[in-house]
Amino acid sequence: MSLESQQLIYERVTRNHAKELEPILCDPKVYEHMDDGIGPTSDELLKAFTLREQGPSAHRHNETWVDYIVRDKASQIAIGRVEATVIEHRAEVAYILGTAYWRQGYGSEALVWLQDFVQEQYSVREFWATVTPGNEASKHLLLKQSYVEISNKPLPKVTSYDDGDWVFFRRAFW
C-alpha cells in the first residue's frame, strides 16, 4: 500500500522524528482536551518515539504498533502523527496534528489512510477510538468517518481507554 494520500505523506516513526515534531507535539494547545492538558517534554517525546520505534515489549506480545509521521506533500513539513495498536482483528486508532493544521481536512485524510493501511496489512475488522470528554472536534472527525459512540455499552479490552472517555467503534468496510 502507498505511504501517501492526496495531500499527505506518511513515514514510519523513528526516534529521529522527535526533534522535528517537538514544536507540534509538545505544544500545550494540542493537549487542551487530552492527557490532563499537559503535553510531553522534549525528553519524554524522544523516549516515546524510541519506544514506538522499538515496538511493544514482551508482555504485550499480542500487539502490533503502527506509528506514522504525517507530512504535508506540498511543503514536506511534518504536521503530526497517526497510530494504531492492532490486537487480533481490531485496531485502536489515534491521531494528533499541530494546531495550525486543524480544520483543514488533514485529520480526516490521515485517519482514512490509517484505517485502509491497517485493514489491508493486518486484516483488521474493527476500529476503536477514545476521546477525552470535551474534545468536540475529535468527536466530530470520528462521527464523520462513520464511527458510532458506544460509551455506555460494554466494551472490549480497549487499551487506550481512561475512565470517562468517549468510546467510538466502526466496522471495517470490505
Rank of each mutant, 00 (worst) to 15 (best):
T64L: 04
A18Q: 00
G105F: 07
A74V: 15
S160T: 10
W128V: 04
A78Y: 05
R90I: 15
F49D: 00
E136T: 12
W166Y: 15
S5R: 08
K157P: 06
I77D: 13
R125T: 14
A94I: 07
R125K: 10
H61N: 12
R81G: 12
D67F: 11
L45C: 10
V131M: 02
T132Y: 14
T50N: 04
H59V: 12
E120Q: 09
R125N: 13
L25K: 01
A91R: 05
A129G: 02
R90C: 06
A84P: 00
L8V: 02
T14A: 05
W65P: 01
E44D: 07
D27G: 04
L51A: 08
H61E: 13
F169D: 01
H89W: 11
D43V: 07
G55I: 11
H61R: 13
V82Q: 12
K153W: 10
V167Y: 02
I87M: 10
S146N: 11
S108Y: 15
I79F: 02
L143T: 08
R170P: 00
Y31L: 14
A129S: 06
A58D: 05
S108E: 13
E109A: 03
S75F: 11
G39Q: 13
P40Q: 11
W174I: 14
L142V: 09
F49H: 08
G80F: 00
Q104N: 11
Q76V: 15
K153Y: 14
D43L: 12
E109I: 03
R15I: 10
